[in-house]
């Protein structure tokens, strides 16, 4: 897989990143990205037929538990404190600009 500035921009859009306006920066970023992905291609050599993917070291340990709301110690009534962290809010709501 080869990465160029177009594919870097497509990934940036998916990742909700603005890669900036400087063409030199974008070229460097795409080159770095390309070298990294080219290095990742070493995995194609690995013989993995029939190998179950391992997504976490803790396999099969999180058993079912009662569906109960756990309020971490001292968290009761913290909604207002959490809302205070909002860059912009209207009353009890987070506020964002128009969608389109």
């Amino acid at each position: 897989m080869t990465i160029n500035t177009d594919s870097a921009l497509a990934m940036a859009r998916l990742a909700r990143l603005d890669l900036g306006a400087e063409p030199a920066d974008l070229t460097k970023l795409a080159e770095d990205f390309d070298r990294i992905v080219a290095y990742m291609d070493i995995l194609a050599e690995a013989e993995t037929a029939g190998i179950e993917p391992m997504y976490s070291p803790m396999e099969n340990t999180a058993g079912p538990r009662p569906d109960e709301v756990l309020e971490p110690e001292g968290s009761a009534g913290k909604a207002e404190l959490i809302l205070e962290q909002a860059p912009e809010r209207v009353g009890r709501f987070f506020s964002v600009p128009r969608i389109f």
Partner: peptide, 14 residues
């Protein structure tokens, strides 16, 4: 090609 393959390789390394 990448994510799932890497997770399989993770098991080989384990």
């Amino acid at each position: 090609a990448y994510y799932r393959k890497a997770a399989q390789v993770r098991r080989l390394i384990k």
